[in-house]
Design a protein around this nucleic acid. Structure first.
Lengths: 239, 239
DNA sequence: GAAACCGATGTTGTATGATAACCATGTAAG
DNA sequence: CTTACATGGTTATCATACAACATCGGTTTC
């Protein structure tokens, strides 16, 4: 417990700072699983905030499964982060291997989702996909609108699986991937790429329309392979 | 805002109940993106708790990205749950279709993880898997220890992919699935099943040891198929 | 008339103190 | 040795107060 907070802090809430500070102590191993946290009063004094703020931070960490607390005893670092919430550290994603791992995970989900979508899609699903693709055609390549509709298209594919969690997970992972790409500023910009990307999407759409799971899977794989190289990822042979 | 909380509530924290209650209002569309939440005072009055408890709930929802708040104005439902955290509502999982969806998602990840593990596993990975399997043999079927080592085995498989996010996601999903199964009390108990399950695990281990991705994939699929029927899930033809 | 100023009011952010419920521990009574 | 009780420490909750900020209306000023 070393961090001291300035009195003048017009940024995130104090509880957020306290929470991430404690979180860091845990991540860095200065607070080990099973360890008892300082009492709320001590924490309040250490950080120079009210006990109320500390409690908000504690509540947050508890909801994230990082700690657990018992009335009359204290708060303890959770043995295993049996989290009821899943988080991804943005900073860690800046490292190439981490990014590649997340990209791979997304790929697995996307490819399987495409196959399932081809089997289960309804006409409404198809309509939504076509609509998203049409919107993307009218957006300038690389623009915010373009990126948004790109994600939207993939979302409609995921939705066509009829699996709500597929949508939730895929969007979660994709968002993180997209953020990381934007942050690194690694995307190339070219008019040609727009046509290429749209063509890949069209192929996915067609195969799902034809209810051809094998083809949809392969089309999605090809699309992701293209996306990877566009971002400068040396992709590994898969399957 | 309808829920009234009993004064006598010796369960989860009040802030947890308030948070999930508001969360439900959002999920059910009674609070739409952009809508302003009632003031903290109103919420406190509605739920019959102090403003302090409401603030802890708000802090939690804010950290989950579901709402945002500005000093002097109020709290608002986030336009897009651009959450930096991913959560799964436990209550919703009680419904059969939701559970089935999550089970399917887990299956996708497990199967692909098994294939990747077969390709990339190191000798250390293999050792960890064997160790986990050995521990499971010594645990009584259906016991807490058994369930724990079962999860541990699957974790070692996921770890053998070398993809940290695969581990994180798979464990997250598996935990939720396991919780839901335990809550429903739907698992059968029989000595025979122990041998069957162990056999399935052994087959997975063997194929990964042989670096046979196809076989590992198939073994994992079979294992999950067995697990599904053991839990009473009518599984759908996949692939 | 338009723009700038000003104050009243409502809301969130934070601090402080108090009380109830609960746990752990030690100590005295049986 | 066991039980009962007293005590101190900790979390959970409540209540109140104040600071910081936003909004809105009226007033002044140009």
């Amino acid at each position: 417990m070393t961090l001291k907070l300035d009195k003048v802090n017009r940024g995130p809430h104090l509880s957020t700072l306290v929470a991430s500070s404690i979180s860091r102590e845990i991540a860095q191993g200065r607070l080990r699983p099973g360890d008892q946290l300082p009492t709320e009063q001590q924490l309040a004094q250490t950080f120079g905030v009210s006990r109320n703020v500390v409690r908000e931070a504690i509540a947050r960490l508890r909801s994230e499964g990082r700690i657990w607390s018992q009335q009359g005893r204290g708060a303890f670092v959770a043995d295993e982060p049996n989290a009821t919430v899943l988080t991804i550290d943005f900073d860690a994603l800046q490292q190439a291997t981490a990014f590649q791992s997340l990209f791979e995970l997304r790929g697995i989900l996307e490819v399987q989702a495409a196959a399932l979508a081809a089997k289960r899609r309804t006409d409404d699903d198809l309509l939504a996909m076509k609509e998203a693709l049409a919107t993307m055609r009218n957006a300038p390549y690389g623009s915010v609108m373009w990126l948004k509709t790109d994600l939207e298209f993939h979302k409609t594919v995921a939705a066509a699986t009829g699996n709500a969690y597929m949508v939730q997970f895929l969007m979660f992972v994709s968002e993180r991937v997209r953020e990381s790409i934007l942050a690194s500023g690694n995307q190339q910009r070219s008019e040609d790429l727009a046509a290429v990307t749209l063509g890949e999407h069209q192929r996915i759409l067609d195969s799902i329309e034809a209810k051809n799971a094998e083809e949809a899977q392969e089309a999605m794989r090809a699309h992701l392979h293209g996306a990877a190289s566009r971002v400068g990822l040396a992709e590994e042979q898969s399957e």
